[in-house]
Structure formats: C-alpha cells, structure tokens
Design a protein around this nucleic acid. Structure first.
Lengths: 221, 221, 221, 221
DNA sequence: GATGAATGAGTGTTCATTCAT
DNA sequence: AATGAATGAACACTCATTCAT
C-alpha cells in the first residue's frame, strides 16, 4: 500500500523494466517529478514528452527507458501523489472517516471534508490535469473511479450504520447517497480550486459539512 | 434568446457571416446537425472537421464558409441544444423551478430533478463531449458555467426565499448551497449517463430529490 | 486489365479516395513518377516519403492525400509498370507464349526469353526494389507471386500440351517444371541486371533458351 | 578455413577481438547462438540487438564487446552455419559432387540435389533471413555469392568435363549454365521452404534432378 | 569483461486551415 | 457559395551505439 509508487492499480502498461540500478532510480524519479511539474503547468493534453525529458534534464529517448507513454508517466505521477497523501495521513473522499463515535458526528464530517478540500487545494494543478486526462482517456476515468471508490464505500458503510442507529434518514440508498455527496464535494473542490471560482475556504468547509449532515438528517451535535 | 442558434453568448468569434442566401442557411444547418452527430460519436477532441463536412455532405472548404473553427461549430451545436431545450420547456439546473408554492415543495423539486436528468440522459453524448471540451478549452468552461448560472441563480433565490419563510435551514449560504446541489446533480448525471455507471433512473430521481430537500431541511410534504 | 493503374491486384489499402479533379490526378501522377525515381535510386527500404514528396514537388502532407503509405505507392508504381509492359505488348515470365506451332518451337521460347530479359534489364532498378520489398513485406511476396503466376500457368499448360504431343519429356510434372524454369530465368535476370554480374546479353538469351528446351527434351528445330 | 567460426571470408570488420578468456568465448558463443534464434524468429531486419543480448542473457553493452554491429553477428552466424554444414559433410550448391564416374551420373546429381534441399529445409529460417540481408546489404550479396561460388565452380567444371566426354550438350556455356541451374535449385528451395509454397519433397528432388540432367542432355542411366 | 542506463538522430503521419478553380 | 486538393507544422517513438560503474 505504501510501496514505492503504488497505492492505485498500476494500469497494466508493460512499463519498461529498467530500474535496477541506483542511477536508473534517480533518473526515473527525476522524470516523475519533472512530469508532475509539466502536467501542472501545461495540463495533461498539452504536456509533451520532450518537455518532460528536458525538464528532467535527460535525453528524450531516456524517457522511454522508464515509461511507455504519456499515460504511463501520468499514472506514475498520480500513484506518487496517492502515496504522498497516504503518508501524510490524508484521507480522500470527503466522507466520514468511520469513527463517528469518538468526536462529535459533525466534527468528524467536518474534519474529513476539510482534509479533503485542503488536499485538493494543494494539488489543484494535478487535479485539473487529471480531469483532463479522464475526459480523454477511459483509463483515467477508471483511476479516478478507484480513487473515490474507497471513500464512497466507506461513506456508504457509515451511512448504513447511522441508519441502523436511527441517526440517518432511513429512506436513502446508502450507496447512491454516498456517491452523490462525494460527487458534490469533489466537484465543488474542482470548481473552486482548479477553475478558480472564488469561495472562502472556511465557508466552503462549513457549507459542505452542513449539507452533508443535513442531507442525511443527522442530529446536530 | 431564441435567435437563430443562440441563447448562450456567442463567443466573440469573427464568425464568417456569409449566411444570407437560403442555400447558405441550408448548408449551415446541415453542418450543425452533422457536427452534433460527429461530436456525439467521436467526442469533442476526436471530432475532425473533415468528418463533419463529409457527414454534412459538403466539401471540407465549405465548413470554413460558415464556421471559423471546431470550437465555433461546437458552440453552435450547444446553442442549438439550448434552444431545443427551451422550446421543449425543459429547465436545466436540477433546481427548484420557482413555483414552490403551487404544488408541494417536494413535488416541485422532484419534477425539476426528473426533467433535468431526463434531458441529460437524452443528450448524454453531447454532454460527454461538452465535458471534454470544458476540460480542454476555457471557453467551454465558461459556456458550461453560464449554462448552469441561470439555474444556480434561480435555486439560490428560491433557497433564500425558503429561508425567509422559515422553510429552509437558515445557516446555509444560498449561493454556495445552490452551487453544491447543482454540482451534485449534474455530476451524478454525468457519471450515470455519460460514463455508464448503472443506477435505476427512478432511484436516482428519488435519492437526489430527497438529498436536496433534506439538505435544505425542507419540511416533508 | 489496362485500366488506369491496374493489372495486378491492388493490395486492399483504403487508398485515400481524393482524385476527382484533374489537378488531383496530376499530383497523383507526379507522385507515382517521383516514387519510381526514388525507389530506383534508394531502394525500397531507404526510400523516404519526404523524398518522394520533394521529388514530386509537393508538400509532405500531400503524399497522404493520395497514398496511405510507402507500400501503397509502391504498389501503384508496380501497377503502372505492369500496365506499361502490357501496353508495350511485352509478356513477362520467360515462358513459351503459347503459339508453339507457328514459328519454330525454339524460336518461340527464345523470343519469350529475350522479351522477358529485355524488360527486366530496362526496369532493373525497380526489380531490385521489388526484391527488397518482397524480402520485407509479405504483401509484395504476393504481388511477385501473382506477377509470375500468369506466366507459370501459361508455361505449365504449354508443357502439358507438348507432353501430350510427344514433344516434351512426359516424366516431368508440368507445374513444378514451369515454376523451376521460371525461377531460373528470373533469378538469372536479377543476378545479371540488378546485381550486375556481367554476362553478355545474347549469351544469356541463348543459354537460357537452350536450357529451357533441353530441360523439356524438346526436339531441336 | 576452419578457424573459430569461419569458412567464409570474414568481412573486414574491426571485430572487437577481446576473445582471449574462456569467459569471453562463452559469452561470444552464447551471443552467436542467441542471434541465430532471433534472426530465425524475426528475420534479419526486425532483429534487434537488445533482443539478441537478452536472448543470450547478457547485458546489451556486452554485445559490443564481441561484435561491431548486427551485420557482424549475422556474418558470424552464417559462418558457423557454414562450418556445421561442412562438418556434416553436406555440400551446398545442388551441383554434381565431382565423382560423376563412380555411381551413375543421375544418382550423383540426385544425391547432391537432395542433400542441398534437405539442408535448405533444415535451415529455412536462416536462409530467409539471409535473403533479407542480401536484399538490404551488399555485404551479404557477396556472402551469398561466395557461398554458391564453390558449387557453381565445381558444377561448371563438371559440365565442362561431361562436354569433353561427349556426355553433355557442347553448345552450353559451362559457367552460365552452372549459374542458371544453381539459381533454379536455390530459388525453388527458397520458394518452397522459406515462403511455404507446398511441393512434396520427393517430387521436388526428382523434378529438379531430371531438369538438371535433361538440361545438360546427359544420357539416362 | 560485464553491466544496463543514457543518448539523440531520424521519420511517418495527422489534420486544421488555406486557396485556386 | 461551393469545391476538394495542397499545405506544413507538430510530435511521439525506436534503437544502434556509447560509456560510466
């Protein structure tokens, strides 16, 4: 789960083996880092292999020693991001993080949302690139899907639990509800941080959290 | 608002005018219709001018007699869609359609959502193309924004009204709330109809409606 | 059989339609002619599309208005060659041309061989290119095969006829014999004219003819 | 003539020597063997140095410790083949093997042809690669030429001898005749074993032999 | 001698756009 | 207005060869 560069399913690219030496690893790392910068700067579609290689200060051909294609590096960049986020103890989906009991319910939801939105803000450039990628390449629709799946599943489970405890509207389908609320948060994050529609960060967190708890008819703390 | 092919602001393209004669109009119409088919079939990015011209059974060059570029036709296609939807009396944004008083509140929200989702389903191909376009070209981010602005504004107004009437949670920021709920519905529509995540249509409508009313803490009918 | 540019099966390339105008035809012709020169100069493998386009004095992209690939032009070049040869009344395979009765048998064989060898000498450059092409691309193995099939079939028929008339060794399998003698002549032609092993032309014709008639045990005139 | 891996003139490549140690020899051998497999599998042109090295389980760079280029290994592979054939007592060119006197003349020719064809069949993959190589690189035209020269010379000598003994058509030029008959057999072998045109092996041998003896007007046994 | 990563030149192909007819 | 051929810039990708460990 925290292996070098993983965490999300590596799209089954034949990924040029060649990384047995230290030197190879260094170059590969440089390429991933460079790619990230280029993708943030130019977006997924306008990013050019040549630029990535140049940014990493290696010859164009060396790119292909480590990656099979633009998709391939991009997947690696996303995987590294995922790793970073896990190491930073950040969860993703804007969902309840499952411990509804310890802190107040509302606090729990708020913290999850805040963490998600902060993370999104920090990586806005990459997120924008990812939306582009997903708009163009089904492979990244899948990556995006899997990325949110964890959190949707977790949320759905939490919702079901709350329903059983009489703490959430029993009429709601937990799965679809989880999807809907997740969609709401991530889309708002996209609009705010990637597209730059200006909303004060705290207002955002509060509103989202209130909508989430309201939507489930969770009792106020 | 219902001028030939408008309704949304025509991006200030120098649009090769030249649409005086009846023949010219017919060609233009054929191109727009053809373009729609091609965009639906191939998506925004993979659509090629040559194919659009061929589909319209006109020479490649004739395309440029009527449109300046791919963006230009696409804008025309979207404008025509908008017109069709208005003529069909369809509203868009998943919002309350403003007559909260007459039918039950819940019914009003449900109808609006149902109408939106049905419309989305009918035009799923084009919506997918539009998401692509917006992911690539800021011009279409704007178009998409304006497209939803009407409905967000209307929803925000309705929310504010409900709040004043004591029928909606007064803590919510009407504007952001409207955005959030709109985002929720449209994103869910995208996932369901453009990406094919399967959810029964009626369950979708019901869940969305319930989330919407819950989120606002609207009283049950 | 003598349609514009045909005679051998056009390999089923989607061959870019675009040749409805006179101008288009002229460009296409120029490209075929240019391609022939380039193939003769550089061989099949080293021929570059850019060079062909340049030689034809058109933009690189224009090449693709008329041909899908290098294989495609090369097929067109060979087809045109075939047409030229048919128009020139030249037969190909070094075989008896079927009228064994009128002139002496020996004379018949000799003339066929002479015609074949002269034609080969005239088009040696192209033949060399074709051998290259066939060595690399099965498509041209097939072209070469079909090219000789006509003559092999004709020869096989003639041999069978001679056998029935008691004028040829009845122990020989007509089909394989035809193949063998055809192979002998064409390979000798290749060695002599494409590879430049020097043999006086007339000696070549005579030897080949004598071997042919001897091999079949045809009676001397 | 029987130096390590020779028998045919090693084209004057500066051949990275370096074959002093036992280890070096083993690597070199592994490379030649690997190269043979790769050439058979992929043909001369599509064979890649990297694949050869991989197949030999050595690093890419090690290839260049032993060979200067692809041509260079290929020459070595052919040389080794030649050696093997000599050790196996196999002669090549489809010619009379010089002992016209002892067994019947016909038997002699037949055995030579059979041996040649069997050898060709056994090494069909390599022969196909060699034809490719010769189609592309004059160096291998030369190799091929030298390879057959031995046999053509031997045949020419035999033909001359037969002519002097009154056992062969005196009108034929021995040299060209030898070339022609050799071409016939090798080309037939190529078509049958490398290109897969199906002919029963024994029919092939018989026909070829009969054509050969007929062509020379050798008396039947 | 072996290793395997780095190099970088070389080219086919696409497609939006123009323009002569 | 329509036609459809011509234009040419743009870019990914391969692979033989080198060279620092």
């Amino acid at each position: 789960m925290a292996s070098p560069d993983s965490g999300i399913d590596q799209p089954a690219q034949p990924q040029p083996a060649a990384t047995r030496t230290r030197r190879g690893m260094r170059t590969r790392d440089a390429l991933v880092a460079a790619a990230r910068r280029i993708f943030e700067r130019d977006g997924y579609l306008d990013a050019r292999i040549v630029d990535i290689a140049a940014e990493a200060k290696v010859a164009t051909g060396s790119f292909y020693t480590h990656f099979a294609s633009k998709e391939d590096v991009f997947a690696a960049v996303l995987a590294r991001l995922q790793d970073e986020m896990l190491h930073a103890g950040v969860s993703d989906g804007g969902g309840d993080d499952g411990d509804g009991g310890r802190k107040g319910l509302w606090r729990g939801v708020e913290e999850a949302n805040r963490a998600y939105l902060e993370s999104y803000r920090r990586n806005a450039g990459l997120m924008a690139a990812m939306e582009q990628a997903a708009a163009v390449d089904p492979q990244f629709v899948r990556v995006r899907l899997e990325r949110s799946r964890v959190f949707i599943d977790r949320s759905a489970a939490a919702i079901a639990r709350l329903q059983r405890s009489g703490l959430a509207d029993p009429e709601l389908d937990p799965e679809i509800t989880a999807r809907a609320l997740s969609a709401m948060v991530s889309r708002l994050a996209y609009a705010t941080f990637a597209l730059g529609e200006s909303v004060p960060f705290d207002t955002l967190v509060e509103t989202v959290t209130r909508l989430w708890t309201n939507a489930l008819c969770m009792p106020q703390d």
